[in-house]
């Protein structure tokens, strides 16, 4: 299913509108069908990340699930030595936040088609990739680089899933130590801030812009609602019901209104059911 206009050209790179070059990829040399990888130099103006230097990074789309980072690294080494490979579910800027997690606690990765950011060591590798002819496929699984899929892979996965309790315990301990330290620092800071917010002798409070992570005073809508509700329930508890004549009358009025509403509702429901002819008993 190659683009039609490129069909006649052998040994030529295939570029589609949008600037992507199409590379074909097959699992092993004897597979019949090929996937297409869409590659392009990585060019995002906003991003100033050191992970993806603009002139040396290749943006790869549609990497099949059986290609791990190592395999991709190996595949692209033929165009020049590869510094790093990053595989992601969706294109986008890299986000690294929160404390570093050990592999035991990382959420399971999705095994679908991925996008990749391949960083070469030198920038001249990019043109080499882009001029790679379309009809010469990249081969994933070769003799010197067997890729395990299916049963072999699952058995390996199962074998790798064992965790030594000691190791796990160690990881937990170090994380918690770290966490406690962070917590302590946090508490320290909050205490300082609280001190600053104390009223002075004349009742003045010094208000400063809170730092990231501090708890603000409850000036939210929800808090207001809550106090209002509390007031209402307090009042209700004190009130006498159906004591005065006007209260009694009101209750009756409400009752009739309720009945009317129900009657209307029922009528509408019936109309709906009738429209669907739900009254045939057999």
């Amino acid at each position: 299913m190659a683009p039609s206009k490129k069909k006649h050209a052998k040994n030529q790179a295939c570029v589609i509108p949008g600037g992507f070059t199409v590379l074909s990829l097959q699992f092993s040399s004897d597979s019949a069908a090929r996937h297409s990888l869409y590659v392009k130099e990585h060019r995002v103006r906003a991003e100033r990340s050191s992970h993806r230097p603009l002139d040396r990074t290749l943006f790869v789309l549609n990497i099949p699930p059986y290609c791990s980072e190592d395999v991709v690294k190996d595949l692209f080494s033929q165009f020049g030595s590869v510094q790093s490979v990053e595989l992601r579910d969706h294109p986008g800027s890299s986000q690294e936040s929160g404390p570093k997690l050990s592999k035991f606690f990382k959420p399971a990765e999705k095994q679908g088609f991925k996008v990749g950011y391949v960083v070469f060591q030198i920038s001249s590798s990019l043109p080499a990739v882009k001029s790679h002819p379309h009809d010469v496929p990249l081969v994933v699984c070769t003799e010197h680089r067997p890729v395990k899929t299916g049963l072999q892979k699952w058995i390996q996965q199962y074998t790798n899933s064992f965790i030594q309790p000691e190791q796990l315990q160690q990881k937990v301990d170090s994380f918690m130590e770290d966490y406690d330290k962070r917590k302590e620092e946090e508490a320290e800071r909050q205490k300082k801030e609280a001190e600053e917010e104390q009223e002075d002798e004349e009742g003045w409070v010094k208000v400063t812009r809170g730092h990231k992570g501090t708890k603000a005073r409850p000036h939210s809508e929800a808090a207001n609602q809550r106090t209002l509700q509390r007031e209402i329930t307090k009042k209700k508890r004190k009130e006498l019901l159906n004591f005065y004549t006007w209260q009694h009358r009101n209750t009756q009025k409400e009752h009739i209104a309720e009945l009317r509403k129900k009657f209307e509702e029922d009528k509408q429901r019936i109309a709906l059911l009738r429209a669907q002819r739900k009254f045939r008993p057999y």
């Binding site: 299913m1 683009p3 039609s4 996937h35 869409y38 789309l61 549609n62 294109p91 088609f113 996008v115």
Partner: peptide
């Protein structure tokens, strides 16, 4: 770019 998984392109 977000919808090319397992798809092939056709240029007309």
């Amino acid at each position: 770019t977000s919808q090319v998984s397992a798809r092939s392109v056709e240029v007309t």
